[in-house]
Write a protein that binds this DNA or RNA. Structure first.
Lengths: 135, 135
DNA sequence: GTAAAAAAGATAAAAAAGGTCTTTAAGGGA
DNA sequence: TCCCTTAAAGACCTTTTTTATCTTTTTTAC
C-alpha cells in the first residue's frame, strides 16, 4: 500500500518538466540534478513515459525531453500507473479468474471501492495543478 | 499499492475465526486447512493479532484461538494494519522530518487525502460484516 | 510426566526494488 | 564523412522485502 521510489522519482521528474516553459527541451541529466535522482534510473523512468506518449524525446545534440501534451492533459494517475502499473489494491481485482472465492467473498467489494476512490483522486489531479508554486 | 499475501491470509484467517460460534476455540491447523494457508505462516500472523488483542490464544491441550473481542468491534483496518503496518501511501507521510520538500510539495496533500479515504473505508468495515454469508 | 498446542527465533529461498553499465541508434555540426 | 551528443535498450547486479520453513521453548490439560 505504498508508492515505491520509482513512483516518487517519476512524479518529481515529470513535474519538473511541467514547470519548464512550454516547448523547452531539457536533458535527463538536468532533471536528475534538479530532483536529486540518479540519472540512469531517471532515464529508465522517462523511457516508460515516452512509450506512453506522456513525454516526447529527441536524441542527439540539442536533444532531451518535454511533455508529450499539455500539463493539464496529464493526470497524476497516468504518471503513477506508467511506472507502477495499474492501481490494484488486491490481486484478486486483477480478474483473470484468479479469485476463486469471488462468489462468496465479502472483502472483494471493499477493495473495489478503494481502487475506485484512489483512482478517482489520482485522476482529479493534473500536472498543471502540481506545477503551480505553493503559496 | 497492493495488499501482500500476508495481508490476504490475515483477513482470510481472522474472518474464519469470526464465523465460528462465539467462544469457540479453534486450532491454527484448522484455520490453515480451511483457508488454504500454510500453518506455520498463519501461526505467525495470528501471533501478531494476539499481541494487539485482536485474538486471544490458549496454549496446550484444548488450546487455540478465538476473537479477542466481538466481531463488530474489530475493523478491517485493524486487521490489515496488524500485519502490514500503517496505511501509508507515500513515505513522506510518515513524518519524522523525512520530507524536506514538504513546504513546496504540491503532491503531499494528495497522498494525505488518499491515506484518509483508504483508512476511512477500511475503518467502516467490521469482521461482523465480513463474516456474513453473501446472498 | 507426557502430550498438545502456541510462542519465539533462526534460517532460507524467491521475488521485487533500486540501481548500474554497456552497447546501440539517432541527430547535429565541423 | 566523422565526431560528438543524447536517448533507447537491454544485460547485469545488489539490497531489501516477501514468503515462507524448521527448531526449540513455553504453557497447559490430563
Amino acid at each position: 500500500m505504498e508508492l515505491t521510489r520509482k513512483g516518487e522519482y517519476a512524479i518529481r521528474g515529470i513535474v519538473y518538466l511541467a514547470k519548464q516553459p512550454v516547448g523547452k527541451v531539457v536533458l535527463v541529466s538536468d532533471v536528475a540534478d534538479a530532483t536529486g535522482v540518479s540519472q540512469t534510473f531517471l532515464a529508465k523512468i522517462f523511457q516508460s513515459f515516452a512509450k506512453l506518449g506522456l513525454v516526447n524525446s529527441f536524441r542527439g545534440t540539442g536533444g532531451g525531453f518535454l511533455l508529450g501534451r499539455p500539463a493539464a492533459k496529464i493526470t497524476l494517475r497516468q504518471v503513477v500507473e506508467a511506472v507502477e502499473g495499474p492501481i490494484m489494491p488486491n490481486r484478486c481485482l486483477s480478474g483473470e479468474g484468479m479469485c476463486t472465492r469471488e462468489a462468496e467473498c465479502m472483502v472483494h467489494p471493499i477493495w473495489r471501492k478503494i481502487q475506485g476512490e484512489v483512482s478517482s483522486i489520482l485522476d482529479s489531479v493534473t500536472l498543471e495543478d502540481l506545477a503551480k508554486e505553493k503559496k
